[in-house]
Every structure is written in structure tokens, then in C-alpha cells.
Design a protein around this nucleic acid. Structure first.
Lengths: 191, 191
DNA sequence: TGTACATCAGTGAACGCGCGTTCACTGATGTAC
DNA sequence: TGTACATCAGTGAACGCGCGTTCACTGATGTAC
């Protein structure tokens, strides 16, 4: 093509947007190609197939997101509660400004076959476990089941975003702060 | 057939189990028929098609679950915190003893097309909103954004089950109690 | 500078397979008389 | 009681369509000399 920008990026953006709205299974190659203004074959220049493309995009987006979050979550120049608050803010900002990417990783995380069970250091759950473990070790929160509390933390932070995505609740600039407070109370943080 | 029990039930159980493990899209009619020990056509005696069957089963299972939960959640002979604790216990019991049904409603709730957006009185989210609203009205918890707090409540209660389903955390007999305590702390319940 | 060739993103038409669905049928059970 | 017919859950083979995928190709751009 004569256009300077590669169609590859357009294809990937279209795919992520469609995956995030219609879901992986309900999005066809034809859909993606049409949205990107490209023929169906173009996709195979860059990927072996639909499944492989989805999987690679998922990992790329998840990596980017978790890196962003862990950067503030484990910045030990700040106090425990401040780090949590900033992480929540980062997540909610990410949701607001990269809603397709966010919805894509959030909603398709369980849409892959079993053999794709991702176990990696940067996995969100591991982030939460490490964070709770650190806070417990530092005596900032009472001793507890770190795995369980990490799960609770994830639930509290993520659920409002899921519900917003499906039009069940509204978000406001105050929401991240309210969520953070709720987390701290739940963890029994002594403020 | 000569067997006294209707194959219909076997078909439905097989379908739910497969939907819960492989997901809606990755489960084929052939899969269901094979699991039920039946030919593919048998399914169409009872349902118009795969999608319709999934949708009807989903609503049936969701109704049963929410009825069970709302029975204890709104039993006004009990105190606020006791009702919450019993509801959590009910949910975790349901997860343990009807894991396929539970995973089915939990994991396919967002797998239907947009026009299937269920807005009903018995929807889990509405249960939570009403509960928080009641508790707030009775002065048992501080005034707050009922919708948001209902979402947080759902997140805390459900997330451990999702994580357990994917092998990320373990559950114990103490888990429901720990989850309930976490909920009460989060809500600022004055015990 | 022009010429010959290599590279490579993207085309467009075709393919074939797996899937959901259909339908004439079977055979067991129930019912009327 | 036996006979004739209706009902209906489930069969089994076929169908056709939509889907992901393939591949010979085009045409623009880069490169060697």
C-alpha cells in the first residue's frame, strides 16, 4: 500500500476492539478484516491464525497493563496505603483511557483453552499476593491468608469496572478513592 | 428408549457441565450429544437450537441460585450481619455442591449477545443493591453509594470462587467466615 | 542515471471442513373400543 | 382380552452455510551495479 502506516497496527486495534465488545468466539476474521479495511488474507501475513493472534495480543496487552500497575504498587519509596491508592487510580485511569484493551484482557482472560493457563510472575493475581505478603511482613496489616486476601483485593478493585462495562453502575472521579478506602478497611489497615 | 428416565435431563446436565468447563462457544452439539449418550437430533426435540438451550438453562439455573440466596439475605427475622454471613455460606455451599451449575452461571453470564442483557428483579446485582440499601436505611452501616458498595460486596464474595475455579487459591471451611468478616469490615459495620 | 532483480505487505478468489440444523423414520408406550 | 391407531422420545444420515485458512498473484519500494 502507498500509505505510510502499516495495516498491521490497524488490524490489531480492530481485533482488540471487536474481541472486547463481541467476545473472541463471536468475532470472525471477516469482521476484523472489514473493520480494518483490509482483506482477510492480510491477517495471515502477521499471524498463523485467529487463535494465535488473539493469544499474542492478549499477552502483549496484559504485560503492558501489569507493568504499569506493578511500577506503582512496588515503589518502596511510598507507604503501603499510598501505593495501593495509586495502583487503584492507575487501574481506573487505564480503564478509562484504554477501555478496549482493558475490556479485552478482563473479559477474555478465561476464554482460552485450558493449556493456555498463564502462570507467570507478572500475572495480576501474583502481583496482589506479593503486595499483601509485603504489607503483612512489614506489620502494616494483621497476619492473614495472603492468597485469600489478595483475591478479595482483586475482587473489590475489579468488580466495579466489570459492572460499569455492562452498564450496571456509574463511575465518578471519586470512585477510585472510595474503592481504595474500602480496600484498606477490609484489610484492617491501621491508618 | 426403554429406560424410564428421560434423556432430556441427561442432555441438560451434560450441556451445563460442558458449558461450565469448555465454555459456550467451544462446546459443540456433538460434544453434548456424545456426553449424554444420545444422537445430535435428540436435542432438537426439546430446544430450538444450541443458543436457545444455553439461554434457557442459564436463566433456569440463575433463578434457582438467586432464589436460594435471597431467601436468607432478606429473612428479616435475623440481624444484618447474620444474614450476610448466612448468604455467603449459602453461596459457598452452592459452589461446592453444584459446582457445574455455579460455574456455568458465573462464567457464561457475559457470553451472550448484547440483546440478552438480563435486567430482572432477581438479578444478583439487584439483590446486593437492595441489601445494602436496607442496611443503610436501618442505620446499620454509614450512608454510602449503595450501587458501588453492592458491587464491592459482589466482588469480594465472588472473586475467591472464580480464583478457586481456576486453581489459583484454595478454599477451606473457614473461608466463608473470613469472607464475611472482610465484607463487614469493608462496609464499616459496627459489630 | 537507468536497468534488472529482490523483497514484501496486502489482494482476491477459492477451498474444505466442522458445525448447527433438518427430516423422514423407528419403535416403544398409551388409549379407545 | 385383543386389535387398531395415536403419540412422542429419540435415531441416523444428510445438508448447506459460515468460518478459518490457503495460495498464486500484484504492485509498490528498496538495492546492486
Amino acid at each position: 500500500m502507498s500509505r505510510p502506516v502499516m495495516k498491521r497496527e490497524i488490524i490489531e486495534e480492530s481485533a482488540i476492539r471487536l474481541f472486547a465488545t463481541k467476545g473472541l468466539a463471536r468475532t470472525t476474521i471477516k469482521d476484523i478484516a472489514a473493520a480494518a479495511g483490509v482483506t482477510e488474507g492480510a491477517l495471515y501475513r502477521w499471524y498463523d491464525g485467529k487463535e494465535e493472534m488473539a493469544w499474542k495480543l492478549f499477552n502483549r496487552e496484559l504485560d503492558q497493563f501489569t507493568r504499569l500497575v506493578s511500577d506503582v504498587l512496588f515503589d518502596d519509596r511510598m507507604s503501603f496505603d499510598l501505593r495501593l491508592g495509586l495502583a487503584v487510580q492507575t487501574i481506573y485511569d487505564y480503564y478509562q483511557y484504554n477501555s478496549d484493551q482493558f475490556a479485552f484482557i478482563l473479559l477474555t482472560q478465561h476464554g482460552f483453552p485450558e493449556d493456555k493457563l498463564l502462570t507467570r510472575e507478572t500475572e495480576p493475581m501474583n502481583l496482589a499476593v506479593n503486595f499483601v505478603g509485603e504489607a503483612m511482613g512489614a506489620g502494616e496489616i494483621e497476619p492473614c491468608d495472603a492468597d485469600l486476601y489478595a483475591g478479595l483485593l482483586m475482587g473489590v478493585i475489579m468488580q466495579p469496572l466489570v459492572l460499569h462495562r455492562y452498564g450496571k453502575i456509574e463511575l465518578s472521579p471519586e470512585t477510585p478513592g472510595l474503592v481504595t478506602s474500602a480496600c484498606l478497611r477490609m484489610l484492617g489497615f491501621q491508618s
